[in-house]
Amino acid sequence: MSMPSVTRATPASRAALFIGLVVLVVLALGPYWAGRADMRLMSEIFLYLALACIWNLMAGYAGLVSVGQQAFVGFGGYMLFALTIFGGLHPVPAIIVGGFLAAALSIPIATLIFRLKGAYFAIGTWVVAEVFRLSFAQIQSLGGGSGSSLPVAIVKEIGAKKATREANSYWLALGAAVIVLLAVYFFLRSRRGLALTAIRDSEVAASGLGIDIWRTKLEVYVIASAFTAIIGGLIFLQKLRISPDAAFSVNDWTAFVIFIVVIGGIGTLEGPIIGTLVFFALRETLADFGTFYLMVLGLVAIVVMLKAPKGLWGLVRDRFDLELFPLSYRVRFPKDEEGS
C-alpha cells in the first residue's frame, strides 16, 4: 500500500506529451492552413531543430564539441545532387543513401580526429569540413566552386505541381525533425544513452564501470554524422541550389546551431526546442540589422554561457523542477506519506 514507486513520468511530462501531440497534429496540417512563406520558415525551423538536437547529443552528452558539422550538412546536400543527377535515384532515397554514406565516411574520420582532445577536437572537425569544402569545389561535374542547381525533372519527382512539392518538402522536414527528436530521446533512454550520461558525468568512473568510452563516442559520432547528412539533404532539397560555400558554411550550419543549443540549454532535450524558437524569433525581428544582429547573437551566447550555463531551459527547470522529456527516474511516494 505504502510502497514507493519508481517512475520516469511526471505530471508535467504527461501534459507535455499531450500538448506535443496536439502541436504535432496542428503542424502536420500546416499545408492546409499556412501560407507559402510561413511553410518555408517552418520547414527551416524544423531542420534547424533537428541539427540542434544532433549537435546537443554530441556536445551536451557525448562531450564531442564539433564546430565542423557543416561537413556533413554539405556532404548530405551534395549527395542529394550527385545521386539524383548521376545515379538516377528519386530524391528521398538519395537523401537516405547520403546518410548511410556519411555514416561510412565518418568512421575513418573519427579514427583520425578522436586523437585530438577537447577543444583541439573541435578545430579538427573544422579542418575536416574545410577538406570537404575544398574537395567538392574541385568536382567540376557538380559545378566546381560555383555550384549547380537541381534539374527541373528531379525537382518534379517531389511533386508535379508547385503546391504539392511544397507540401511534400514541408512534411519531409517536419518528419525528419520528429524522427531525430524521438531518436535522440530513445537513444538517451537506452542502455547506451545511460552510458553516455555516465561518461559525461565522469569519464573516469564510467570507464571503471566497464563502459567503452571510445566506442560509445564513435557510435554517437557516426549516428550524428548520418542524421546531419540527411538533414543536409533536406535543406538543399528546399534550396534547390548548392555551392561549396553555401553547403559548408560554418556560420549557417554550425555557429547558429551552437547558439540555439547554448541559449536553450545544453545537455537537455528541451533546450534545443526552446533555443530554436528563441533563435528564430530573434532572427525574424533583428535580421534586418545584418551584422549587428549577428553581434547580438554572439553577445547573447557569451552572456548565457557565463551567467546561465544551463541555458534558458536550465533556468526554468531549476525554478519549477520540470522535465518535459522524462529521462531521469523519480522515486514517488504514495499520497498518504507525502509531507510526513
Binding site: 577543444a119 573541435a122 555557429a255 545544453i266 553577445l299 551566447a301
Partner: peptide
C-alpha cells in the same frame, strides 16, 4: 565548453 563557446561567440562578434 565555456571557453570554447565564449571564444566562438567572440569570434562572431
Amino acid at each position: 565548453l565555456p571557453p570554447l563557446l565564449v571564444t566562438f561567440g567572440l569570434s562572431v562578434i
